[in-house]
């Protein structure tokens, strides 16, 4: 089964740290990605640019409307995702807990709807 792990965390988490600590914090994410890869569960992953660079697009009455900022105004922002393939939800939750985002933000686990 495929699951999406969305990592929500306060932006500026890395920026607020002294450089050495920030490097270690980012290192923890790459170690997590590496562990996923080594265990053959990683399908894909991406880090997203800050939510300030986000736009919303919708069509209302035939007109395209563009707004700045992310759809959900939240204290923590969507900072990246890991798409994984594991046997069941328990396995997905176990990986989510290992994601560094779980300890400084929230990791949301969403099952993929296979067509």
């Amino acid at each position: 089964m495929q699951f999406m792990l969305f990592a929500w965390s306060a932006e500026g988490y890395f920026q607020k740290m002294p450089p050495a600590e920030a490097q270690a914090a980012i290192g923890a994410y790459s170690a997590f990605g590496e562990a996923l890869r080594k265990e053959n569960v990683l399908v894909s992953s991406n880090r997203l640019r800050p939510s300030g660079e986000t736009t919303q697009v919708s069509i209302q009455n035939g007109k395209t409307r563009v707004l700045n900022g992310p759809y959900a105004e939240t204290k923590e922002q969507l900072g990246g995702y890991f798409l994984i393939d594991v046997p069941d939800l328990d396995a997905a939750i176990a990986w989510a807990a290992r994601c560094p985002g779980a300890s400084h933000g929230t990791v949301e686990v969403r099952p993929i709807w296979t067509m």
Binding site: R49, E53, T54
Partner: peptide, 13 residues
Amino acid sequence: GAKTGTMEVRPVW
């Protein structure tokens, strides 16, 4: 989705 809801456009790092 743009017609019925909202699309969010996020650049990838």
